[in-house]
C-alpha cells in the first residue's frame, strides 16, 4: 500500500460562480488528514461556493481540486461521494417525510455491502443516541439540533474520508450552536477530517485547528486558529468587508 499522503484535500487557485457572477475569484485551501479546517468570512464572501465547487455540486471555472493526491476537479458529485468526500449542504436538509433510519440509509446509497451499512448505522446511533430513540420517527418532526445531527449522521453513513460542512450553525439558537460545535469537535477528535464553512468566526475558530478567511472571493488571511484569533486586523477586515 502506498504511504498515506499528509494532505487529503488540496484546492489550488479555484475560481467559481453562478451565471456571470463570480463568487470565488482565487482560493487555495489545504486540508491535512485528521484536521478540522474552517473557512470563515462574511455573508457573500464565497464560502459556500468554494464548498459546492469542491464537492461537484457546481462546476468550477478554473483551478484544481485534488483529493488524496487524485485530481477530482469538476467530477460528478456521486463519484466524489464514492471517492470519499461528502458534502452536508447548508440549511439542515433532512428528508422530512422519511424516517430517521431511512434518512440515514439514503446516506449509504453508494454502498452496497449490507453488513457494512448495518455497522455504519449502529455507529451513527452510538454517536447520536437521540437518533436511535427516534429512528422510526419522521425526520420533519425532529428539533433543529436533532436535524443537524441527522444530516451529519447521514453524511457519515458513506464513511467519508473528508466531511464538508456548510454553515452547520445557521438558524440554530446559541445553545444549540454550542452543542453542534461540540459534536463536530468530537468527530474531529475521533479522527474525522472536516472542512467547515462558517460565518460565526468566533465559534469557527474555537472549533478548528486552522482557518482561512475569505473576503470577496479571495483568501485574505490564513493560519492556525490561535494565531488568527489573536489577530485584530482579521476582525477589522471582516467587519470592513461586510455587506
Amino acid at each position: 500500500m502506498a504511504p498515506e499522503r499528509e494532505e487529503l484535500l488540496k484546492v489550488t487557485n479555484l475560481r467559481a460562480g453562478y451565471g456571470r457572477v463570480t463568487g470565488v475569484a482565487d482560493v487555495s485551501v489545504e486540508v491535512r488528514r485528521g484536521e478540522l479546517v474552517a473557512v470563515l468570512g462574511p455573508n457573500g464572501a464565497g464560502k459556500s461556493t468554494v464548498l459546492r465547487a469542491v464537492s461537484g455540486m457546481i462546476r468550477p471555472w478554473g483551478g484544481g481540486v485534488a483529493l488524496d493526491g487524485r485530481d477530482v476537479t469538476g467530477m460528478r458529485s456521486d463519484l466524489l461521494v464514492r471517492a470519499g468526500m461528502v458534502h452536508v449542504p447548508e440549511g439542515r436538509r433532512v428528508l422530512p417525510r422519511l424516517t430517521v433510519e431511512e434518512n440515514l440509509r439514503v446516506g449509504a446509497f453508494t454502498r452496497r455491502n449490507r453488513p457494512a451499512v448495518r455497522a455504519a448505522l449502529d455507529e451513527v446511533f452510538d454517536r447520536f443516541p437521540r437518533l436511535r430513540d427516534r429512528r422510526a420517527q419522521k425526520a420533519g418532526t425532529l428539533s433543529g439540533g436533532e436535524q443537524q445531527m441527522l444530516v451529519i449522521g447521514r453524511a457519515l453513513m458513506a464513511r467519508p474520508k473528508l466531511l464538508l460542512l456548510d454553515e452547520p450553525s445557521l438558524g440554530l439558537s446559541p445553545l444549540l450552536v454550542r452543542e453542534v460545535f461540540a459534536m463536530i469537535r468530537t468527530l474531529a477528535a475521533d479522527g474525522q477530517t472536516v472542512l467547515l464553512v462558517e460565518q460565526n468566526v468566533a465559534q469557527g475558530l474555537a472549533a478548528a485547528d486552522r482557518g482561512y478567511v475569505l473576503t470577496a472571493g479571495r483568501v485574505t488571511a490564513s493560519g492556525a486558529s490561535a494565531e488568527l484569533s489573536a489577530d485584530p486586523s482579521l476582525l477589522r477586515g471582516y467587519l470592513g468587508s461586510g455587506e
Binding site: V86, V106, F109
Partner: peptide, 23 residues
C-alpha cells in the same frame, strides 16, 4: 428496495439526495 428509497429521497429533496451520491 434501495431504489424505492432513492425515489422517495428524490421526491423529498433533490439537493440533499445529490449530496448523498444519488444520480
Amino acid at each position: 428496495s434501495r431504489l424505492g428509497l432513492a425515489y422517495k429521497a428524490i421526491r423529498e429533496d433533490e439537493r440533499a439526495a445529490t449530496a448523498s451520491g444519488l444520480r
